[in-house]
Amino acid sequence: MKVLIVDDDALIRDSLKIILELEDSFEVVGVAANGQEALNICSQKNVELVLMDIRMPVLDGVQATKEIKSRFNSIKVVILTTFMDDEYIKEALKNGAEGYILKSQSSDSIIESLKMVMMGNVVFEKDVVDTLKTIINKEKQKQELNFDLTNREMEIMKLVGEGLSNKEIAAKLFLSEGTARNYVTNLLEKLDLRDRTQLAIFYLKNIE
């Protein structure tokens, strides 16, 4: 897994690089001090995952995430920050980040989160999920919404919202992995959503 580390604190960049390179499954292909440097590296190297801080000079992590996801669709972005600001969380996820985790997590937990994202899951730390639910509840409309989804589609969406992969959904619902994948694809098309991250957010916002 080829990783780009983006943080304006050199000590944190170096520490994360050491931690990740202790794992055989990670290869740190670059480090950047801001979002603009990250964009430049993504255009020059084969980056699979970006570990992104939020508050940085020149170009912050929220805008950098938006630019990376629009230019390099296959690159996954995980926000790693100390900030639990409501707007940061909303904007980062809206811009396509596959995860939002905090620097207070242990190194083992951070590594596990990155592995989960590369397996196709979305990863939100519990505190982030709680904050996101609070934000969403404030915005949620009172009337019941009808999205014309079948019971099975609702089940699939709920499990995506809980962070399960297609393989895990298939096992839980006694489906083939291909069938689970087709359900997710159909949900994205029906709800006009881009990816699993948006589907998970849609579930949290409108259904859960």
Rank of each mutant, 00 (worst) to 15 (best):
M1K: 04
I5A: 05
V6A: 09
D8W: 02
L11R: 03
L11S: 09
I12K: 00
S15M: 09
I19S: 07
D24F: 00
F26Q: 04
Q36K: 15
I41A: 04
C42M: 10
N46I: 05
V50T: 12
D53W: 04
M56S: 13
Q63S: 15
K66C: 07
F72A: 12
F72M: 07
K76I: 10
T81H: 02
F83H: 13
N95V: 05
A97R: 06
E98L: 12
E98R: 15
E98I: 05
L102C: 03
S106K: 10
D108W: 01
E112C: 04
L114G: 09
K126F: 05
D130Q: 04
T131D: 05
N137E: 15
K138Y: 14
Q141G: 15
E144N: 10
E144S: 13
L149V: 03
T150M: 06
E155M: 07
E155D: 14
K158T: 02
G161D: 06
N166L: 05
N166C: 14
K167G: 00
I169K: 04
K172W: 02
K172A: 07
L175S: 05
N182P: 00
T185Y: 08
E189D: 14
E189A: 14
T197F: 00
A200C: 03
A200Y: 00
I201Y: 09
F202W: 12
K205H: 10
